[in-house]
């Protein structure tokens, strides 16, 4: 199986087209998205999106493009993530009873991320 890359996009929400643009950045570079989740962080519109994408020779190009989309504050490549299987935690039991897949949440580990903002490497 192709290995997966995980990114976190920190951005500013005005309307849902933000998510379309984030997804389309990968689509335009022929990169498949395995999973995605995101949430509004605060009332000021701060938003974070996590994506697991299939590794691809265009991956870095997509991250760089993403990092210079209007409303995107920064993009982090999460090189090391802790996986929490929600089934193990007894969450979403109903759903999981009927399916064999796990539902995994990815928690970034501090210090193992690479971050880009408007094309520049950041913190």
């Amino acid at each position: 199986m192709t290995s997966e890359r995980v990114v976190r996009v920190v951005c500013h929400y005005r309307d849902a087209s933000l998510l379309e643009r984030v997804i389309a950045t990968f689509r335009k570079l022929l990169i498949d998205i395995n999973w995605i989740y995101g949430r509004l962080v605060n009332d000021a519109g701060l938003y974070e999106v996590y994506l697991g994408v299939k590794d691809h020779h265009n991956f870095l190009a997509a991250v760089l493009d993403l990092s210079k989309i209007v409303n995107v504050i920064r993009v982090e490549i999460l090189n090391n993530v802790d996986l929490i299987d929600l089934r193990d935690k007894g969450i979403f039991n109903d759903l999981m009873h009927t399916r064999s897949e796990t539902f995994i949440v990815y928690i970034p580990q501090i210090g193992s991320t690479k971050c880009y903002s408007w094309g520049e490497e950041c913190g």
Binding site: C11, H12, N71, V72, I73, W118, G119
Partner: peptide, 11 residues
Amino acid sequence: LIDGYKPFKDN
């Protein structure tokens, strides 16, 4: 005033 926009800076 645009959240999440930076013109590229001279570096």
